[in-house]
Design a protein around this nucleic acid. Sequence first.
DNA 1: AATGAATGAGTATTCATTCAT
DNA 2: GATGAATGAATACTCATTCAT
Lengths: 192, 192, 192, 192
Amino acid sequence: MTSTKDTILECARDQYLTEGYKGLSMRKIAQKANISATAIYRHFSNKEELFHHVVKKGFSTYTDYLIPAENEVTPELRLRQTMGNALEFVLDHPRYFELIFIKSETKDELAQFDDLRADSKISFNLYSTRIKECMESGYLKEDNPGELSALLLSAYIGFFSLYTSGLLPRSPKEIKKMYWRSIDRLLNGLVK
Amino acid sequence: MTSTKDTILECARDQYLTEGYKGLSMRKIAQKANISATAIYRHFSNKEELFHHVVKKGFSTYTDYLIPAENEVTPELRLRQTMGNALEFVLDHPRYFELIFIKSETKDELAQFDDLRADSKISFNLYSTRIKECMESGYLKEDNPGELSALLLSAYIGFFSLYTSGLLPRSPKEIKKMYWRSIDRLLNGLVK
Amino acid sequence: MTSTKDTILECARDQYLTEGYKGLSMRKIAQKANISATAIYRHFSNKEELFHHVVKKGFSTYTDYLIPAENEVTPELRLRQTMGNALEFVLDHPRYFELIFIKSETKDELAQFDDLRADSKISFNLYSTRIKECMESGYLKEDNPGELSALLLSAYIGFFSLYTSGLLPRSPKEIKKMYWRSIDRLLNGLVK
Amino acid sequence: MTSTKDTILECARDQYLTEGYKGLSMRKIAQKANISATAIYRHFSNKEELFHHVVKKGFSTYTDYLIPAENEVTPELRLRQTMGNALEFVLDHPRYFELIFIKSETKDELAQFDDLRADSKISFNLYSTRIKECMESGYLKEDNPGELSALLLSAYIGFFSLYTSGLLPRSPKEIKKMYWRSIDRLLNGLVK
DNA sequence: AATGAATGAGTATTCATTCAT
DNA sequence: GATGAATGAATACTCATTCAT
């Protein structure tokens, strides 16, 4: 019951997620979607726009992972749950992680799109909000919340950048433990 | 007196550093090097091998930045100097930074090459060595040196990944200050 | 109150007049007419037929310029007014001029259509009529009216072919003067 | 023994001469030349440049027809021979005639190229020279030689524009006679 | 009377690579 | 060591047109 437009989008995402940007060709997408190459242009005016939608989908998927953490009962738990959800996201969708956080290949194009930059800020703000709460509740020391968010996000991105590069243990079990140990080391200097 | 091989390598590097991966075509490299496109094949069996050498050059450049930190007189200074040199590296050669740390576009190919993974480990070990020293000297708490290196490297990579994505302040002056404040926050929980 | 068919025709004409033949695509016409591309096929069986109508419109526009010259009071004045009106036509509608007189791009198709050839003859006959009058009135020497029409028309077409090619002065003022001087030179050998 | 470059050029010319501009596609040219479509790019950097060469060839062919008229013994004969050679040119190469004189389809591109405009002027100057001679020798009345050239050229272009449009007699014999009669009418008003 | 979806053939161009010289 | 010629596959994209609704 999915529309052709959605099918194209999914195929483009899969294509990107498995083959990377250079594997993202209109022809290949069409082939996967079982339509003619030109039919794509009925739904997306060009490759750029199509990819744009793929990226947007990546951001919304990421946000969908983070948001439920708001249901936890204390600021500290909300912060830790946010980090845990971010962990799940990258393990579930490593290519999406690359797409929205690494994306060196598309940075130039993305730079121009205000909506994508806005999407970027959303995750940033989710971290900020969690951190502000933790400062207000007395769990974390008073500090610049923006810079602290940047630090936490940096550690997250860098950690899984190393992971996707194959420089850290591959096993999900091990990497999860190592992730949490790293978080603890980090928070260690930030708590009151 | 540079050999043709070196000229090709330099041109490929420049091409990559200015135009990114999609600008790295044999023809364009040859044009820059003032030779015929096919002449490249005398020196490199194909594009992959050529790019491989470019990446290797990136790693050695990075290592060349880090190593002089060994001349500092105390473990703590050596650690801080290492981090400072890493900062200089990314500001001097943002494309090389991307190439060797972000490189999502080439990760698949790189994954197969043991020598590149070895190069990756070298910088890792430089961090490890600095950190071990600091533990021995009593500056840092006893901990797993490898995981601590990973954390420091993660923060570094993630921080400048955000920077090259345009999500952090652009001015070198500001970003340097913010970098050091982040390092301090990080070390804060790690020192004795 | 214009019908869709007329709207399409006008848009096709505008498109042709501003963008030339290569800009005359069904999609672009439809876009301008604010209808779907396929809706055109309700009114014209294909592109060829649509273009055919555009050309017809060009001819009738041209004829509309020429005819009022009949109101002048003497044969000589009617002849000169005809030439003056032809001048105004080409300055007002250079693309129409090309379309109906130059039209090398569509000649093959046009060659088959009797109605268009008939339209072509109309302007020819307008000239012939004027010239016959001038012979009867004694203004022009006795000669073959058809061949004289062809000569006058040739000079007209060729003159503005050079003009639209940029080989003659561009300014309307200058080109008008030059046009009349050329006419005088021509008539000089034809008058009694 | 013709080089591939020449072969391509000839095929492109033939293609244009028989199919017109819209038939001038790189693929079709390559097919005619029995090479791969991409091989063309070894010799011409793009379609525009290739077409540019075709046009140049058209101009030089035209000039090659006109120049021998210089061998005639009197100014009047040289003028008439020039006109006769121009006649032969258009009957031998009607498509070249269109290409260089009608060419509404390529006017935009040609407008930018100084060398082509220079080529255009050459034929113009050949006429001018002939006309100046005839004024000096007393065959023609004193007048503006440039404008007279334009008039003669206009008549020539317009006449054969009508001819290629099918509005004049098709038979070479008839059209030649009609051409000369028209020339005589024209010169009639210009001679002393 | 009109639409949206889709198609197949076509466009110019770029690419890494091979081969004979 | 190096070149010029050539290739086949690929690229994004446009076009006129058909068809079911």
